[in-house]
Design a protein around this nucleic acid. Sequence first.
DNA 1: CTGTTAGCGCATTCAT
DNA 2: ATGAATGCGCTAACAG
Lengths: 341, 341
Amino acid sequence: MAVRVKLSDVARRARVSAMSVSNYMNGRHGTMTEETRDRIAEAVTVLNYRPDMAARSVRTSKIQSVGLIVVDESPTYLSDGYTTQLVSGLGDALNAKGYTLQLEGLTASRLSASTLIRQRQTDGLCVLPTGSLATRKEIIRTVAGTGQPFVLLLESLPRAWPDACCVLQTDRQGARELARHVLERGARDLVVLKQSHNHWQAVAERQVGIEEAVAQFGEAASLKVTQCGSGDVAATAAALDAYLANARLPDAFMATNDQIGIAVLKYLKARGIAVPGDVLVTGFNAFDFWQFSDPVLTTVRSPGFELGHRAGEAMIERMEKGVFAERRITLETTFQPSETT
Amino acid sequence: MAVRVKLSDVARRARVSAMSVSNYMNGRHGTMTEETRDRIAEAVTVLNYRPDMAARSVRTSKIQSVGLIVVDESPTYLSDGYTTQLVSGLGDALNAKGYTLQLEGLTASRLSASTLIRQRQTDGLCVLPTGSLATRKEIIRTVAGTGQPFVLLLESLPRAWPDACCVLQTDRQGARELARHVLERGARDLVVLKQSHNHWQAVAERQVGIEEAVAQFGEAASLKVTQCGSGDVAATAAALDAYLANARLPDAFMATNDQIGIAVLKYLKARGIAVPGDVLVTGFNAFDFWQFSDPVLTTVRSPGFELGHRAGEAMIERMEKGVFAERRITLETTFQPSETT
DNA sequence: CTGTTAGCGCATTCAT
DNA sequence: ATGAATGCGCTAACAG
């Protein structure tokens, strides 16, 4: 273990006081003799001095770090394309300003045992909640209970919490546009497919958007909703088997994300059902792997990276100015027509 | 801003000394009067006390946090399936033991400006290096320069560094087996496709494995290597166009990851070239989206999540015992035959 | 079994 | 322009 170099070690070598070194390290060398500055610089380099952030934090009560709590039922929560984008964007915004991102993924039931919740080790928290409405409310209350500022991701903010904000995207509008497109293509009998767990508010909004479009269309169109377990290829196939055992092929399958949409495509292809000839299929998100399917899914692009980025910027502004400038930030989704409709 | 509750506040309310509260918070209440314990518990709950980790860290010089530095040329570095798995696994292992994961993604050129490098704010660092051999060596030297223990991910550890370890997977063997399989299927003229940046050691090893299999096969088999830019659908298509302009269709395309493999499939399908009829195609990794292609890629499964997990466990053991038990941990890849061969 | 003392490494405040 | 004293919140070591 290398010996720990501290401010006073640097000061001794540079023959100045610890305070001068501290000032130097914090960029306050404007008013310093050039010679002093050089001596300090030399000592810092030679001794390979690294400031102890914990000690600094005790003094300044600023930690220069933001926590992200991802509530998810799976330990591989990052394998979700959305989460991945969010983390990238958030990390990018924070790192650019010298903040660190502390990542924690856990199930709703273990949230209250979270180290980010129980201990003060960040300047603020970002949260991606999942679960029933009641569960999500409880998550928000738990986070708010820390007394720290927080940012909700993909979840709208109840009025009750003053020192917080939320970052959302236009899921409902995007889904409505998607459904209208499907209806324009002549589809009348629509089926929504969604996961049976990980209930993000965003997914619920997508379903509502589709429902609105169908309702606006009038009597001629109808909508059913089916769950497809974890949403992977096998679970989706099982769900479709079950569905089609009791019903005839609908005009369109509208999945609440691209993974499910692609699983539907594979299922249909295996059974010789043509897309978009016999049935239309849509997804949602358009992240990376989205274009891997054949045919390529018609979908809606979600600004996941940008959303994380905005959350990070909002948090940084809150830290620097003491208040959140906006309580609610909404980013646009964009319709992405392709080969399956 | 909620008023900050500290140890002494809790102590005052519980009418005990700060030390008793400290002992209580740290689970040392075995030798405490039940009544005292209850009074402290009540005060902690009522006041909603959250220990200040920074202050504790100053005293104990333990931070209970591990850093992960991902060197990557893209700010959306997490969109790589491997990175995603690694982060999940590492975070899972760390969180399970009450450690926090601090995530930082940056380009090789900005590494020395990294906050995790310049400041002491973790108990140790994990690193996923990319770049030329020289770049990767430089990355390792920079990280080692912190004097903190570190774990290399997917990169072998030079002897020079005593307080470190590396976690690897059998890329070479996996690729060799894959290439043998392709050769057994009758392919003789093989083409390796790889990204032209983000040079992980793992990818280089895959290429070597294929080369070894071809060499062992003797004169009859031949191998070419082509780069395909960023490895996305468009760049891969462009690379294949360029390749096929000057050469006839090979017997097999062996991509160094699944994304590229899938891009190859899309390219071939668009040109009416049958897989595996006219040409074989293989990928590498088998993460999540892997099975989205049609036909499903023959590939090799990488234990990404497990690898991150082992890295976390190694780091934790290092912290608790003071030394790394193993300097080199190697996990197995597994051959995953499927529809494209 | 509980309380007192001291000090971790740093930055704010006020001297000089 | 630089330095000395002080204390951030917590816990190791010891005293009672």
